[in-house]
């Protein structure tokens, strides 16, 4: 059918439109400074690594590797904590059926309506009194207190039959054993969704690090790049090189987990 082929080509063209900015970013980051602002040709006339070398050589001003490590540390910790704590809580609410668990659940859901902006200043005061400002913990702990994970996993667990867990209990398995050996594996699809969304959200978090961190060495990538851009806004080549390097890890993750990531995203709309 001819129409189908037209559609195929058209959709690929649309897809290219979405990818083009990224391709341009990468190509331009290989251009020498003089060529950057004269976009006659998207492909560099003289390929150069200079922008990347410059960025990496100024590690004192822009400790790129540190930022990358910090980002990985923060995002991994947030993801780990959210997965473990939320699943424990959801287990307590839906399986142990603790009295007051339902009310707690509604409290958590209601709190999700409050705009994040409201939390900035109070959380700053709390982190300050805990002496946690300007540490990775300042980004990790508040994020792990967010309600989305509990909401998602509780909803998911509610929809699963309890028979297997009950059988395990009767077989003499402890509650903790049931959680670890039965419920966790059963929740795998929801956990994967939650993990992916949490990781990406944490990786891209901008306002948190901006407000709770002071030291350049403690920055995560998004604020690091923003700092770089604020200082060198006139030097597109280098700014684009930093942007490309900051985006690369996420693209790598996307390339590997493309299916899971896209499916996580799509499943958010289907929950009851």
């Amino acid at each position: 059918m001819k129409g189908r082929w037209v559609l195929l080509v058209a959709m690929f063209a649309v897809g290219l439109l979405f990818v083009a900015p990224m391709v341009l970013m990468v190509l331009t980051s290989f251009k020498p400074e003089a060529e950057v602002l004269n976009p006659e040709s998207a492909i560099p006339k003289h390929w150069t690594l200079q922008n990347y070398l410059d960025v990496l050589n100024w590690s004192e001003e822009a400790p790129f590797v540190r930022w990358l490590m910090n980002s990985v540390l923060v995002s991994s910790s947030v993801t780990f904590l959210v997965l473990v704590l939320s699943s424990l809580a959801a287990f307590g609410i839906t399986r142990v059926r603790v009295p007051g668990g339902g009310a707690f659940f509604y409290l958590v859901v209601a709190s999700m309506m409050v705009p994040g902006l409201l939390f900035l200043v109070p959380v700053y005061f709390i982190l300050n009194s805990l002496r946690l400002l300007d540490t990775p913990a300042a980004l990790i702990l508040p994020a792990a207190g967010g309600g989305f994970g509990v909401f998602l996993l509780t909803q998911f667990m509610k929809s699963l039959p309890k028979a297997i867990e009950e059988a395990a209990l009767i077989d003499g398995c402890s509650w903790l054993g049931v959680y670890y050996h039965v419920s966790l594996p059963l929740c795998a699809p929801a956990m994967a969704t939650l993990g992916v969304l949490t990781f990406i959200g944490s990786w891209n978090d901008f306002v948190g690090p901006l407000v709770y961190l002071d030291s350049i060495q403690n920055y995560t990538l998004p604020v690091g790049i923003a700092l770089y851009q604020a200082s060198y806004y006139t030097e597109y080549g280098r700014t684009l090189a930093t942007s490309a390097m900051a985006t690369a890890p996420l693209l790598l993750i996307f390339a590997i987990f493309q299916k899971q990531i896209v499916e996580s995203m799509s499943s958010t709309g289907l929950k009851d």
């Binding site: 490590m69 540390l73 991994s76 910790s77 780990f80 966790l184 594996p185 929740c187 795998a188 993990g195």
Partner: peptide
Amino acid sequence: MRIRQALNGLLATILAILLVRSGWI
């Protein structure tokens, strides 16, 4: 199960980075 492996992997990453950081500090 894969979900538990994933959690362990995350934990290992965190610990590894913490180790490197403590060296810096």
